[in-house]
Structures are given as C-alpha cells and as structure tokens.
Simulated scan of single mutants.
Amino acid sequence: MRDLGAGFSYLIKGQRWVARHGRWFGFGLIPGLITLVVYAGALIGLGYGADDLVAWATPFADDWSSPWLGLLRTTLTVLVFALGLFLAVVTFTAVTLLVGQPFYESLSEEVDRTEGGEVPESGLPLWRELWISARDSIRILVRVTLYAVLLFALGFIPVVGQTVVPVIGFCVTGYFLTEELTAVALQRRGMVLADRLVLLRGRRMLILGFGVPLGLAFLVPFVAVFLMPGAVAGATLLARDLVAPPAEDEDASPSPSPYSVNTD
C-alpha cells in the first residue's frame, strides 16, 4: 500500500513541477491539443455510428421480440463505445507522445537538469527516435488490444462484468499509461522496451499508484491535455528513482572479511 501512495505522489510532484515552470507547461500543451482534436472527432463518430455497427453485426436478432432486441443491441452499443473509450484512453498517451516527441524529450531533459545529477541524452537523430517510439507504441498497442478484447468478452459475465472487469480495465490502463510516459526518460537512458517492462513489473503497485489515477482523470474531457506536461514531468521523476542505485547505509559498519587477519 505504501507503493500506491508513493506512485500517486510522483503524479502530484510532476504537476507541481510544471506549475513552477510555466513556460514548459505551455510548451507541453501543444501535442495534446493536436491529438485531442483528432480523438474527439473519432469518438463523436463512434457515438453516432455505434448503434448502426451493432445492428449490422447482429442480423440474427432482427426477428427477436421486444424487449430482448432492444436490450441486446443497447447493451452491445454501450460496450462498443466503452471499448472505444478504453482504447482512446490507453492510446491517447502513445499518440500524443509520438506527435510531441521533440516537445516531451526537451521537457524531460529539463526535469533531469533541474533535479540535478546526470542528464542522459540518447544521441540518436530525431527520425531514429520517432521510429523507436512508433515501433514500441505499436507493440504496446498490440498488448493493450489483446487485454481489451479479453475484458470486452468478460464484460458479458453477470455481476463480475460490471464490477471486477472495470477495475481490472483501469489497472491495465494505468499500467500501460505509465509505461508510455516513463519511456520518454528511460529511452534516453538506453533502456529498450523489454527492459522497461521488466523494470516496471518489479514495482507494480508503485506503477499503478501513478497510472490508475491518471487514467481515471483522462476520462474527463480536456483534462488529459492539461495533465500531460505534468504527467511527463512526474514520470521522469519516477524513472529517475526507478533506475537510481540503492542508497548505502553510511552508519552501517562494513562486515569483516572472513579472510582478514588480526594483527593485534
């Protein structure tokens, strides 16, 4: 439980950082605004077309009597839109990071610089960084899609589908949101996707404490855009501590070597 609270604290620290550095907050808004316009149009289109899609996919129910026909198609329409919303929340970060790669790289480097210590640089040309980000985002999207399909199917289970499944869905969302956000700082430290996933799996509760509240906040229209700069800053702070070497206890005296010789 302590890690859950610690993860949430990184989210708050990131928002405080951009609040203290207003220029970087405005700089980090640009990619999110571009992506928001695209996603808003897609979700509006899905909202208008979901019922037609469900009707097309369920011709076997055309002859069903009331209320079963309406109940089936209404339920499926809600599930289709929920699935689209789930994918939008999870992929919004990936697409925004891809669009705003130069913006968020600079923001993350500035966080490292202001916090002191090493400021890693990938040393790669921009096109190479964009290619790596796009490739890793597709790999994550495949994983997310598999989870989404599974959770969509489990959503038909009575009670469990309306209680447990949404909770699992938000945990999945939060986990992969955190992966995408920490990738900005971890890629500069030379970590490939496989290594990043191993690192995050070792601190699952910490990752969920950061990502789940952020995923819930992203459900509120426009909130995602304004939280993205602080989310990148917070994820950079989180990444710094994840890869930091363990602190040594200065007060602890070193244990004697079994090979030491008493010279008294």
Rank of each mutant, 00 (worst) to 15 (best):
G28W: 03
Q15A: 10
G190Y: 05
V78F: 10
G169N: 11
D63F: 07
G100L: 03
V160N: 00
N262I: 10
M1L: 15
W24Q: 07
G47F: 08
T178M: 07
V37I: 15
I138P: 03
S108L: 11
V172L: 04
V220C: 08
G230W: 05
V80S: 03
L4K: 10
Y259W: 14
S106W: 11
P166D: 07
V142Q: 06
P246R: 03
S255F: 12
G234S: 12
A153T: 04
A50H: 00
D251W: 12
V243Q: 08
L76C: 07
L71C: 09
G47L: 11
T114L: 08
E250S: 13
V184R: 07
E118I: 10
V78L: 13
F218D: 01
G22I: 08
S133V: 12
A194W: 09
V95N: 05
G209R: 01
L97A: 07
G234V: 02
P221M: 08
L83N: 13
W68H: 08
P125I: 10
A244V: 10
E248R: 15
V192F: 08
C171R: 00
F8Q: 04
D249E: 14
L199F: 07
F222M: 07
G174L: 00
P120F: 10
D62E: 15
V18I: 15
L33A: 14
F222L: 14
L208C: 06
G49E: 11
T163C: 02
L208P: 03
A185F: 05
E129Y: 03
I30D: 02
F103G: 02
G84F: 04
A247V: 03
L206Y: 12
V198W: 08
S9I: 10
E121P: 00
P258I: 13
G84Y: 03
V149G: 05
L69Y: 14
S106P: 01
V119S: 08
E110S: 01
G161C: 04
A233Y: 06
D249A: 10
I30T: 10
G123K: 02
T93H: 07
V144N: 00
S66D: 15
R23P: 06
Y259C: 05
R196E: 05
I207L: 07
E110Q: 13
L200K: 02
R20F: 15
G209W: 00
L237F: 11
T91L: 14
V184H: 04
D136V: 04
L154M: 10
R113G: 09
P59C: 14
P102Q: 13
G169V: 01
W68E: 09
R135D: 15
V18Y: 05
Y10D: 08
Y175E: 01
F218H: 06
I168A: 06
T93E: 08
R23E: 15
G117R: 12
R143W: 03
R20L: 15
L29S: 04
A57N: 01
L154Q: 00
F92S: 01
